[in-house]
Amino acid sequence: MLEYLPDDLREEMRQAAIRKRRRGSRLHIQLGPDVFPLTRLWDRGLSIEAARLTHLRGVVDLFDGPRHIGHCLIVASVIDGDELVCEFKSFQPICDGPPVDFERTAEPVAGFLPAY
């Protein structure tokens, strides 16, 4: 059905879809002082608008608004249409609390004396 629309209307609809994707996502990556909003994120990759960046490689920080989610090691990037599609080799999540060397359970372990 889109092939019957005028070219300028088709282009305006494409631009509106890009603006909606950009506004709807709080996810962004930070590469040094530069910040780039994500258009998509999946388990082994992410995508950015190709107009903002043409090539990306290396370690970047991933954020959801102000909250730091993790570090991504990006190994490949290719321009696909109006997106820069990046694949990452590893994703290291950022923990909210300190690491522990034991399993935390909600119920007390058998053999402990009750606290008085």
Rank of each mutant, 00 (worst) to 15 (best):
A17G: 00
I74R: 03
V35T: 11
V35M: 04
G32H: 00
G65N: 13
L31T: 00
L56F: 00
F88V: 06
V78H: 10
K89D: 14
V60T: 00
F63P: 00
G32R: 00
D96M: 14
E3M: 13
H28K: 06
R52H: 10
L56W: 01
R19H: 12
A110K: 09
I74E: 05
Y116G: 01
P33Q: 02
G81P: 07
E107V: 06
A110Q: 11
P66D: 15
K20L: 09
C95W: 13
R104E: 15
F91C: 09
R14C: 01
G58A: 02
L27H: 11
G111R: 07
P37F: 07
T105K: 09
C72N: 07
F102G: 03
R52T: 05
T39L: 13
L41G: 08
G32C: 00
A76D: 13
P6F: 08
D43M: 11
L46C: 07
E11T: 13
M1Q: 10
R14S: 08
S77E: 03
P93C: 08
L84F: 04
F91V: 10
E3L: 15
M1R: 08
S25Q: 13
V59S: 09
Y116T: 03
I74Y: 02
V60A: 04
L84R: 03
V59D: 12
F88C: 06
G97T: 15
G97M: 12
P108R: 14
C72V: 13
L46W: 03
I74W: 01
R19F: 08
E107K: 13
L113W: 07
K89L: 12
C95N: 15
G45A: 10
L2K: 05
D96T: 12
A16G: 02
P93E: 11
L2D: 15
D82V: 04
I69H: 10
L2E: 14
H71C: 09
L41W: 15
F112E: 13
L73Y: 09
R67D: 14
H28Y: 08
G81R: 05
G97P: 04
D96W: 09
G24F: 08
I29Q: 01
R19P: 02
E49P: 04
G65L: 15
R52D: 13
V59I: 12
K20M: 06
K20V: 03
R21L: 09
E11N: 11
R21S: 05
R22C: 02
E103A: 13
L31Y: 01
I79K: 04
C86Q: 01
T54I: 04
V109K: 09
S25E: 11
V85F: 04
R14A: 12
H68L: 12
E107L: 11
P33A: 02
G58K: 02
